[in-house]
Amino acid sequence: MPQQRRIHAPLLALALLAGATSRAAPVEVLALGSDGKPLPETVVFLESGEAKAAAKPGGMAEMQQIERRFVPRVLVVVPGTEVRFPNRDKVRHHVYSLSPAKTFELKLYTGTPANPVLFDKPGVAVLGCNIHDNMVGWVVVVETPHHAVAPATGLARLPDVPPGRYRLRVWHAGLPPGTPATESPLEVPAVGVRTQVKLPLTASAL
């Protein structure tokens, strides 16, 4: 009689976890304007109960100031993320936000402030500089690890998304202030999915 092999519970759990991870697939979202052309800097994210549970707090992100601009202009993080605002310019900056999602002020400084800013609740924080009125940036806080900002091609890629049902949310800084992210259902199969969305904006008008 052949000898049966025993699989210990910890090894079985690891095998199941590896199998679940291997089933995750990419989701690609093409963001277009009303003219059908790519819409860079569109924020794309997937929401669900499982995604919210997977959005672990913590970590560090960075939004630099280079040539009197925020780089990147649009930064997406999960709640509990600390963001540094290093000044790479030779002039001083005074970064602030008056948004309900996050109110803070980094008074006139060069280099990197000692204390990063903690973004602890979802929403959109609009950033400015008290010295340079043309400087504007956005920190978008979302309760999901599945998020991306579309590059110049307009194609946002969210890697390793587990199969399931999600709410596809899309937002752009060019929308009227206070406009919430659009929402539509999205079923993600085990092989991944590619879809497209249109916003009432054109890149030329931004």
Rank of each mutant, 00 (worst) to 15 (best):
V193Y: 12
P145L: 10
L201G: 06
V149F: 11
G192W: 11
D160L: 11
T179V: 01
A203Q: 12
L201A: 01
T195K: 14
V170R: 13
K198H: 15
H146G: 01
P189F: 07
V188S: 06
A150E: 09
P176R: 02
P145H: 11
P177A: 08
A156H: 10
W171C: 08
A181Y: 02
P176D: 06
A156S: 06
V149E: 08
L158R: 02
A150V: 09
L186D: 04
G178E: 02
E143L: 12
V170P: 13
V188C: 04
E183Q: 09
L158N: 02
L201R: 12
V191L: 14
V161N: 01
P159F: 10
P162R: 00
H146C: 01
P189V: 00
T202Q: 15
E143F: 12
A181V: 03
V161A: 01
T179L: 04
S184W: 04
L158T: 00
E187T: 13
V188Y: 05
L206I: 14
G154W: 03
P159N: 06
P200D: 03
V193T: 10
P180N: 01
L186Q: 08
P162V: 03
P180R: 04
H147A: 13
T202P: 11
E183K: 02
P145G: 05
L206A: 13
V161C: 00
T144L: 07
A181H: 05
L158I: 05
R194D: 11
Y166A: 02
R194M: 15
V142Q: 10
T202S: 14
P189S: 09
V142Y: 10
P145S: 08
L199T: 11
P189W: 02
P177D: 07
L186W: 06
T195V: 15
V191H: 15
A190S: 12
A152E: 14
G154A: 07
R165P: 04
A173V: 07
S204W: 14
L199W: 12
P176W: 04
V191M: 11
P145T: 03
V141A: 01
Q196I: 12
G178N: 07
H172F: 04
V188R: 09
L186P: 05
V161M: 03
Q196P: 09
T144I: 06
P151G: 08
L158W: 03
A181D: 01
E183V: 00
A173W: 13
P189Q: 08
P177W: 03
P151L: 12
A173C: 10
L201D: 11
P176A: 03
R194C: 12
A190K: 12
G174Q: 09
L158M: 05
L201T: 06
G174T: 10
A148V: 08
V191F: 11
P162L: 02
A152Q: 15
V170W: 15
L175F: 04
V161R: 03
R157Q: 06
V141G: 03
P159I: 03
G192T: 05
